[in-house]
Design a binder for these strands. Structure first.
Length: 630
DNA sequence: ATAGGGTTAG
């Protein structure tokens, strides 16, 4: 009997052509390896069944690799079934490849099952499963397997170490990390660039920045990833200036920044509110022709939002061709943080209209926007709408509703809502309640809410300050003092307040009563002049939250040199007339500064944009975009 | 013959 000629499989040297009764003529190569036959099965598998192709181990490897690369789980399962019936089914290498295919295609359970059923496991079997677990954040399981394989006497290689280090870093297990580091050295893998970068990342994640830096410096071979690991670490740790410094060094060293690099840099600019620097790096990215994929684009949207240019946020958002849910959430957050409640809601409705599935974070943005804009009914409506999308509200959504009801003045309703919540209220819930009590000056409920926060989160200084302020503004100065004393006695420290202004390429930072700036004299003179001017048109220093035992004169004095006022005076001295002024602050703005800023914006006819930890305040013509609601 | 490290929203 004559056998049909074989079809050439890609990267095989044989060249023969296929002709048979099958409705297919041509070559099986990398382009049609996963093509379906009319039967619904994979064409290549049908061809094997019809003996049109003589399969070898290599062919199966090619099919599985293709399924893995393209995340084709269904096709992979078909090929797997076929492979089990083949004469290669006992090959460990092939079993490994199949297992890896399942792990990469999202069926880690199946990968784990196959691993369990293997009669013979080699180092690669372990490594692949460890990698699978490390990539799905199941770090504990990954490390358990790593320990097991070492116990079995299998010697890990640079691939194993890379994934094991990622897992140790992921669960911040310094001890495991150090152990693996030792094993890397013992196995002679420490000069491998993958291992080196993973080591830098691991130490950084375990908060051992000094060691991460030393390791990085000592790397025999560096690549983009090594740089990215350290740059991302600085950004995570809030040391954006170091991220920027490394970025320049990286470029000077001839390394090409990647999506990862830009993403970390934009994140750093976002938390520093460094608009000019961010714009500069954005331009650099465009110049290098780096594509605007969602990951980077999302960080850019966030960066422009947090650095104060909502217009640029929207521009980038509109440019993004492939938006994902994070893109929408970033844009919604940007609107919400700028107090643009209606825009947030409009964009959310647009998202629904184009059929994009919102997630829990989407709803959180929308609820926060409603509460900050005072849209009570809308907020309650959207809370209910979550059910329609089969989304379970978590504690953050309940906090948002308490905030919504509380800000709108429905304090009793908020309290009832807390009592009826299906989940246990946390400190954050009562903090929202406490904040509402401050706004609406409800001392009794405020004290009750504060007590709950003290119980649930004794280390937070926020509620003490809030409660003390509530007492002070009700004239209960002894109670105000008692709460402050409680705070000092329990050793809770207030985060020191600071404000900063970006002018050109430098950042000027101020703390209260700052006496360190080269222009300190001019700054003070400037502020005193402004203060006297605005007092004439109605500004009254709000001293209610200043320590009660100092006299009125001194209480006013203390207020006058809050960091944001110094920053404002400085910015007025150093920026052109008529241009907007942008100030960032690391805690929430106080009532007195907020009031003073409104008067100054009218007096000097300038737009002042103040970013505090919560949101943006746009002061213009004597009023603020938050409508005194923050 | 099979495999790897670094990134985003609240």
């Amino acid at each position: 009997m004559k056998r049909p000629p074989q079809i050439p499989i890609f990267h095989r040297s044989t060249t023969s052509y296929f002709h048979s009764a099958l409705p297919f003529s041509g070559v099986i190569d990398e382009n049609n390896l996963l093509t379906k036959a009319p039967s619904g099965n994979l064409l290549v598998l049908d061809l094997i069944d019809r003996r049109a192709i003589e399969p070898d181990a290599r062919l199966y490897v090619d099919i599985f690799k293709r399924c893995t690369d393209q995340r084709k789980l269904k096709e992979g399962r078909m090929a797997h079934a076929h492979f089990l019936a083949s004469r290669f089914s006992h090959y460990v290498v092939l079993q490994n490849t199949v297992m890896n295919m399942y792990a990469k295609c999202g069926d880690v359970e199946m990968a784990r099952k196959l691993f369990g059923e293997m009669t013979e496991r080699d180092m690669v079997s372990y490594t692949m499963l460890i990698t699978g677990y490390s990539q799905t954040s199941e770090f504990k399981e990954a490390l358990r397997l790593y320990v097991e394989m070492v116990k079995m006497g299998l010697r890990p290689n640079e691939f194993t170490f890379g994934s094991a280090l990622k897992s140790a870093g992921g669960m911040q297990s310094e001890a495991m990390g150090r152990g693996i580091h030792g094993a890397c050295v013992k196995c002679g893998c420490e000069d491998n660039v993958y291992v080196g970068s993973a080591l830098v990342d691991m130490y950084a994640r375990c908060n051992k920045m000094a060691e991460a830096e030393i390791l990085f410096e000592g790397l025999k071979i560096k690549n983009e990833v090594s740089w990215n690991a350290l740059i991302a670490a600085y950004t995570r740790g809030g040391e954006g200036h170091n991220s920027m410094k490394l970025f320049s060094e990286m470029k000077r060293g001839g390394f090409r920044p990647t999506h990862f690099t830009y993403s970390s840099i934009f994140a750093a600019c976002a938390s520093n509110g460094a608009l000019e620097q961010g714009k500069w790096v954005h331009a650099d990215m465009v110049k290098l022709g780096v594509q605007l994929i969602a990951f980077v684009g999302n960080t850019l949207v966030d960066m422009y939002g947090k650095a104060g240019s909502i217009e640029d946020s929207k521009k980038v958002f509109d440019q993004l061709e492939k938006k994902d849910v994070v893109s929408w959430n970033s844009m919604l957050t940007a609107y919400a943080q700028h107090g643009l409640g209606q825009e947030t809601i409009d964009l959310f409705e647009e998202m629904r209209a184009v059929g994009f599935q919102p997630d829990e974070i989407t709803f959180l943005c929308v609820l926060n926007a409603c509460s900050h804009t005072g849209l009570l009914d809308k907020g309650l409506y959207y809370f209910e709408l979550m059910k329609k999308y089969k989304l379970e509200p978590d504690i953050t959504h309940y906090v948002a509703i308490v905030d919504l009801l509380g800000r709108a003045g429905h304090l009793e309703r908020a309290e009832r809502f807390i009592k009826e919540m299906p989940i246990q209220p946390t400190a954050a819930v009562w903090k929202a309640m406490l904040g509402a009590c401050r706004i609406h000056k409800n001392m009794e409920l405020g004290a009750y809410a504060a007590e709950r926060v003290f119980e649930l989160d004794p280390h937070d200084s926020g509620p003490h300050m809030l409660l003390s302020n509530i007492y002070a503004s009700a004239g209960r100065l002894n109670d105000a003092a008692r709460v402050r004393k409680m705070m000092t006695e329990s050793g809770i420290k207030k985060e020191p307040a600071c404000s900063w202004v970006e002018i050109g390429n430098s950042v000027h930072l101020f703390v209260a009563n700052d006496d360190n700036h080269p222009q300190r004299k001019e700054i003070r003179v400037m502020w005193e002049k402004l203060r006297d001017e605005i007092k004439k048109v109605g500004y009254v220093p709000d001293t209610s939250h200043v320590l009660w035992y100092v006299d009125q004169q001194e209480r006013e004095e203390r207020l006058q040199y809050h960091s944001e006022k110094l920053a404002l005076a400085f910015a007025l001295l150093n920026t052109p007339k008529g241009t907007p002024i942008s100030i960032k602050k690391n805690i929430r703005v106080c009532g007195d500064c907020h009031s003073a800023f409104k008067f100054v914006s009218k007096l000097v006819n300038r737009e002042i944009i103040l970013r505090d930890t919560n949101r943006f305040h746009h002061f213009r013509h004597g009023s603020c975009s938050c409508r005194d609601y923050w």
